[in-house]
Amino acid sequence: MSHHSHEEIHGIGYGILVLVWLGLVVLTGVTVVASGVHVPALAVVIALLIAATKSSLVVSYFMHLKYESRIFHVILLMGIVTIAIFIGLTFFDVLFR
């Protein structure tokens, strides 16, 4: 029952963390610039796609999900599916009222 072995503590190099941060900064720039382009239908989709990419970077590297066991991936998946269901089914009312 007692796990105090050190192999449970995975390390990530400082370099990777800084690279991820750089990626996040660049994506922030992209989303700000993209918002100036007038393509109304696509604007939301692009903004959300970039936000999702940024979040997945934060989750995978800063939050170490990439290095965690499968159950952590399942936990996150449960959350995302639940959120999708809640938002999706509510649209059936609001869009068709």
Partner: peptide, 22 residues
């Protein structure tokens, strides 16, 4: 159980489509 909540709202004025789906 997480997919059926709006069956409490059939007479609330939500959309007919939502009524049928729920």
């Amino acid at each position: 159980g997480s997919l059926v909540w709006a069956h409490h709202m059939f007479v609330s004025g939500q959309s007919d489509l939502a009524n049928i789906i729920f």
